[in-house]
Amino acid sequence: MELFGLFNYWVFALLLMVGFYAVISRPNLIKKLLGLSIFQAAVFLLYITMDKVEGGTAPIIQKGVDDAIYSNPLPQVLILTAIVVGISTLALGLALVVRIYEAYGTIEEDEIQQQDLNR
């Protein structure tokens, strides 16, 4: 069924929007980062979905089997890299939040802006 066949893509779009919304709407910096992570995770899903080959298996060549259908390994490799990037971003973001908390005593965006304005 067409709709079901695109199920993963619907989830991708949904996750993307959920993450994006969280980034935009939440004043709390940690929640923003969480949203950003969800936003990135959605893309992982997009890549993983596209490499799926109907009836495919893990792309490992075995002796005696020469008519196997393999899933495309490349997007999986790519997305491993992207996951690493995402983790680094999250780690750096959290480190920044720690520093911001040290400097401002809060991690709410509106309060931070207020403090900067008052200076």
Binding site: L92, G93, L96, V97
Partner: peptide
């Protein structure tokens, strides 16, 4: 930087 990080990552 935080602002840049968010927008840059997006």
């Amino acid at each position: 930087t935080f602002k840049y990080l968010i927008m840059g990552t997006i």
